[in-house]
Amino acid sequence: MEPMEDASTMERMMMQRAKKTRTPINGSLELLPLCNMNCDMCYVRLSKEEMEAQGRLRTLQEWLEIAGQMQKSGVLFLLLTGGEPLLYPNFKELYLKLQDMGMILTVNTNGTLINEEMAEFFGRNKPRRINVTLYGSDEEAYRNLCHYPGGFAKVIQGIRLLKEQGIDVKIGGSLTKANQNDVDRLIDIGGELDVPVRINTYMMPAVRERNKPYNLQSRLEPKEAAKARIQALRGEMGEELFAQYIEKSLFQVENIVCEETLGRMSCMAGKCSFTINWQGEMRPCVTMSEPAMSVFEVGFDAAWKYIMEETDKILLSSKCSACKLRPLCRTCAASAWSETGDYEGVPDYMCQYAGETLRLLQEMAWEKREEKYSWINDFR
């Protein structure tokens, strides 16, 4: 997963420079695994009992100690996430202290806890952005998928309150079988609220479902996910930009030079970006379970050095390196491990996903060509 995929041009330049110098400029703190919702596809959430069986929440002072070390090492961009980060007992104090250290903060939230008081807090202490996940277009989705009746109305109200405070908000949509028909409506809701929408149609397999066949998992089956991806991109981009996307994507597939060799990670993870989970384990990204090292045991710099060195050792499938579908495929180290249990594994899910994406783009390109030259039929 690429960190800060919605970064500005200046932010991307800073990230690229940090990648070359191996400076940990971007990170995320998973403050806790607890959440007031219980979404079927979640791979993070634990109940309070499950959490206590595995460990404890880190104190405010523990996080601030690590934050001071992060500051000295060059960390600038920081994402606060969870679970639901607003449930962290000392969230506001931690947030303010991190801002005082010069951190540029982004917050991931499900939006249900954004009331007037919380919106005003963010209005007085503006983050870089607040990412709000919208799990469906009505209360039924929140009841059936998130097991949180009344959640939809709370999220919409929360977004409105944040907008009233002049806060930059982005809606993230996560498609599953329970809400797969909501693509267009989610985009419409974003338009109505004047908030950009980014719909994620590829979901990592939930921990509780990893050993089940695709048709028994909460996430969409591969070809359904590909179809939803195309539909979402079309809605997000608009017809003109989407036509350019089709042309560019097909050109890349047709002209890619493939070589069968073991691949290496090309993203920012472990190069200039990291995550620290609620137990204090640093990892290259939020969806990778290893390599991992406890920052509370060895300190931030030693943990970062270990993560960099171990990330450099990760090799990816040579079959993937030689695949013509690479420009359309979303396979990365994290998804390979999550899907197959092996960084060098070839995820069948992603193969089907990319193959169907290509088929759909080719079909749409042909339709557009026929439409463009339909006037010829008038002379026959």
Score class of each variant (00 low, 15 high):
239 E>Q: 12
239 E>R: 09
239 E>S: 14
240 E>G: 03
241 L>V: 02
241 L>F: 11
241 L>R: 14
241 L>N: 14
245 Y>S: 10
246 I>W: 06
246 I>R: 10
246 I>H: 07
246 I>C: 12
247 E>I: 14
247 E>A: 15
248 K>T: 12
249 S>E: 05
250 L>S: 10
251 F>V: 09
251 F>R: 09
252 Q>W: 13
253 V>E: 10
254 E>R: 15
254 E>C: 00
255 N>F: 07
256 I>K: 09
257 V>H: 10
258 C>V: 13
258 C>L: 07
259 E>N: 10
259 E>W: 03
260 E>D: 12
260 E>F: 04
261 T>L: 09
261 T>F: 02
262 L>N: 11
263 G>V: 00
263 G>I: 02
263 G>M: 04
264 R>A: 10
264 R>F: 08
264 R>E: 12
266 S>M: 08
267 C>W: 01
267 C>K: 03
268 M>P: 00
269 A>E: 07
271 K>L: 03
272 C>E: 09
273 S>K: 08
274 F>N: 06
275 T>L: 12
277 N>R: 06
277 N>T: 07
278 W>C: 05
279 Q>D: 06
280 G>T: 02
281 E>W: 03
281 E>H: 09
282 M>R: 08
282 M>L: 14
283 R>A: 07
284 P>V: 00
285 C>Y: 03
285 C>D: 04
285 C>I: 04
286 V>S: 02
286 V>Y: 01
287 T>D: 14
288 M>W: 01
288 M>K: 06
289 S>Y: 10
289 S>W: 13
291 P>T: 08
292 A>V: 10
292 A>L: 11
293 M>K: 15
294 S>Y: 05
295 V>H: 01
296 F>Q: 04
296 F>K: 06
296 F>R: 02
296 F>D: 00
297 E>Y: 08
297 E>S: 14
297 E>N: 14
298 V>M: 02
298 V>N: 01
299 G>S: 11
299 G>A: 14
300 F>Q: 00
300 F>T: 00
302 A>I: 00
302 A>K: 15
303 A>Q: 09
304 W>S: 03
304 W>M: 05
308 M>C: 15
309 E>R: 14
309 E>G: 12
313 K>T: 09
315 L>W: 02
316 L>H: 00
318 S>T: 03
319 K>F: 02
319 K>I: 08
320 C>F: 07
320 C>H: 01
321 S>A: 13
321 S>N: 08
322 A>S: 15
324 K>T: 06
324 K>H: 10
